[in-house]
Every structure is written in structure tokens, then in C-alpha cells.
Nucleic acid binder design. Structure first.
Lengths: 103, 103
DNA sequence: GATAGAGTTTGATGGTTATCTGACTGTTGC
DNA sequence: GCAACAGTCAGATAACCATCAAACTCTATC
């Protein structure tokens, strides 16, 4: 068994690596920050903020989603994103645990 | 002047991105974990634990060092590494701050 | 100082990925 | 249905990077 008495969602197998990878690209990190600024965020808003095409934004959103870092919800013709803060917290916890920063 | 006893060090300009990049490669992350297992760790020990050449280990150590995640100290013909836990802590703090997980 | 071992550096290579373009799907309102 | 807009998908390209092999530097010991 892994650990006891900790609340934040545990990461699935391989999710740690996916998250680390997702956070590694500065542009993607910036997008995540923008999503975190508002409670929810539409793709169009991101497009206006960054000099990239919508295809690129879509790609980054897919990666963030695959890592479990954001929630995606369709709202009519728009799509809204939200940061899954518990997952991010689980990542930093696991990171600290692996490098023996807390034991 | 830099930090008080319990204060986590602040990250230098660009260091956040370097750390994120350094943590993104699974092998490099595994090396960092191994260094964290012991209080200090020699390169030869890492070579015995992972199926990579010394050139590759050296490369990863350089990246971890460039990110400020490890300290490197020459001990005779060996080199010993130590995790700079305060830097890692500063990284996770900054990460949480950027995604508004704590405000 | 020669030999051996520890680590670095360099050049090459193969795999990964960020990005664009353009085609496609889906939704809204006429 | 169709025109317009939001987002996805697929193919292409260029940059990046993990890895290896081999040459190199540094240190210790004989």
C-alpha cells in the first residue's frame, strides 16, 4: 500500500510523469496560469492572449487534460477549462515525498 | 542576505522553467530520487543503478545542477551530489502560487 | 611521470514535440 | 439548409533532447 491519512487525490499510474511533462513547456504553463486566473476560461480568451494558432492551443489543452490538470466542459459553442487544483497539489506532494522533503 | 534559516530560497529569473524542464524527464527524476535517498551520492553509485553510460549520467547531473536542484562537491576522485531541498520547495511554492492554489 | 579509474565533453543519431496550415466536426442563428 | 464561428484532427516541419561512443581532463597511486 502507498500512504495513509492524506486527503488529496492520489495520482494514477504514470500520471506523475505526464504532469511533469505537461508543466515543462513554458507556453503550456502560461496557459495553465491563465486558466487559473479566472475561475473558468474559454479557449477564445487564451487565443487572444497568446500568439499561437487555435490548433496549438487545442494541442496544449489536450496535454493538460491528459495529465489530469484541467477539467473540460462544453458550454454551448464554447469550451470552458478549470484547473484541477487537487491534482496539482497531489503532484507537489508526491514530488516532495519522492525527494524525501517531508519524511 | 539571501534567506533566513527556514525561508525557502527564492528562485532566480528563469529558474522556474529550468526546474520544470529538469523534472520532466523520468530518468532524470529517478536520478534525483536516488540522490535524495542517501544524504550524499556518488556518480559511480548511480551508474550501477541505471542502465546508462557515464556520459548520460554526467549530462543529467549537469541539467539538475543548472536548475539549482543539486549541489556538486568534489571528494578526491569522486564527486558527491546532494539535493537542494530548499530550491525544490521554492519551486513547488511558486507553482502553487502561479496557479492560485494558496491565495 | 605512467597507468588506471572517475567524470566531462563532443559529435552523431533517433525519438519526441511545439507549431503551423488546412481540412474537418459541431453549434448557433438566420 | 446555410453561413459563421468554436474547437479538433491530421500531416508536415523544425527544433529540441536523451542517449551512446569515443576522445579528453583530472586525480590518485605506483
Amino acid at each position: 500500500m502507498k500512504s495513509l491519512s492524506t486527503e488529496p487525490a492520489n495520482l494514477a499510474e504514470g500520471q506523475f510523469d505526464l504532469i511533469a511533462k505537461a508543466l515543462a513547456d513554458p507556453r503550456r504553463m502560461a496557459l495553465l496560469e491563465s486558466i487559473g486566473e479566472a475561475k473558468e476560461c474559454a479557449c477564445q480568451k487564451l487565443l487572444r492572449m497568446f500568439p499561437v494558432t487555435k490548433g496549438t492551443v487545442s494541442h496544449h489543452m489536450k496535454e493538460l487534460s491528459r495529465a489530469g490538470l484541467i477539467d473540460t466542459e462544453r458550454e454551448g459553442q464554447f469550451i470552458k477549462y478549470q484547473v484541477r487544483r487537487k491534482v496539482l497539489k497531489a503532484y507537489t506532494d508526491e514530488l516532495m515525498r519522492r525527494v524525501k522533503c517531508d519524511d
